[in-house]
């Protein structure tokens, strides 16, 4: 069972906002369809890079994520929720969150509950690391706003945490206004970011 809410993405070809749907409870079929669309685009853009002499090593680090596996591993577990943003009938981004088991780390809210973003990624055709002309913007903002709203609805007051991949640190620190708690040696050395209720409110304003 899934819920759909109306949202908007920026169509980067026209610069205008386009109507989109935020899906709460992405189904296995939707994941499989997304992966079957994402994978060839991903491979194609990687092949083009390879032909152009761009080193394989510059592939985005999240290109190996397997959303089908994540869906199967968390299906039926109430601590996890999977969200997607759909536009033009295609999945433009996916996010897996946990609503238990990841207590806050900022001193003033240490140990309090929060929404922890296990994984978030946009479709490969929306990533400037993979394609020259991305199709949609605002995928990240819509998904982070979703996490903040979920946190508010759960009684967590907007508290959200995540481990950013290096190329995304600016988005979380600057554009989302999250607190950077530095490198987490227990999580591949990725930097950990978290919001306070005040930061969450400021983000949504």
């Amino acid at each position: 069972m899934s819920d759909r809410s109306r949202t908007y993405l920026k169509d980067l070809r026209t610069g205008q906002l386009a109507e989109a749907s935020l899906i709460d409870g992405v189904s296995r079929d939707e994941i499989e369809r997304s992966e079957s669309l994402w994978r060839p685009i991903l491979l194609e853009s990687l092949e083009i890079r390879q032909r152009s002499g761009i080193a394989k090593g510059s592939w985005p680090e999240h290109s190996h994520w397997d959303w089908r596996k994540k869906h199967a591993a968390t299906e039926g577990l109430i601590a996890y929720r999977m969200f997607g943003v759909e536009c033009e009938g295609d999945m433009q981004g996916l996010m897996l969150v946990s609503t238990a088991g990841h207590p806050c780390r900022i001193a003033e809210q240490r140990g309090k509950e929060q929404v922890y973003i296990d994984f978030v990624a946009s479709a490969p055709w929306n990533s400037r690391e993979l394609v020259d002309s991305p199709r949609y913007g605002l995928v990240g903002r819509v998904l982070i706003a979703t996490a903040v709203q979920l946190s508010l609805a759960e009684g967590f007051r907007g508290r959200v945490g995540l481990h950013s991949l290096p190329q995304s640190e600016t988005f979380y620190a600057t554009n989302c206004g999250m607190t950077d708690l530095g490198k987490d040696t227990k999580k591949e050395g990725l930097r950990y970011f978290e919001t306070t209720p005040a930061q969450a409110a400021a983000f949504l304003r």
């Binding site: 920026k10 906002l17 978030v120 990624a121 946009s122 903002r141 709203q149 991949l165 949504l204």
Partner: peptide, 25 residues
């Protein structure tokens, strides 16, 4: 969920070109 169209519009340009991947290698 509710998403304010003006809020998205207002922030659309500054989010351009920024990657959003988080979670894990």
């Amino acid at each position: 969920f509710t998403f304010n169209k003006e809020w998205l519009q207002k922030n659309a340009d500054r989010d351009d070109n920024l990657e959003i991947a988080a979670g894990s290698f």
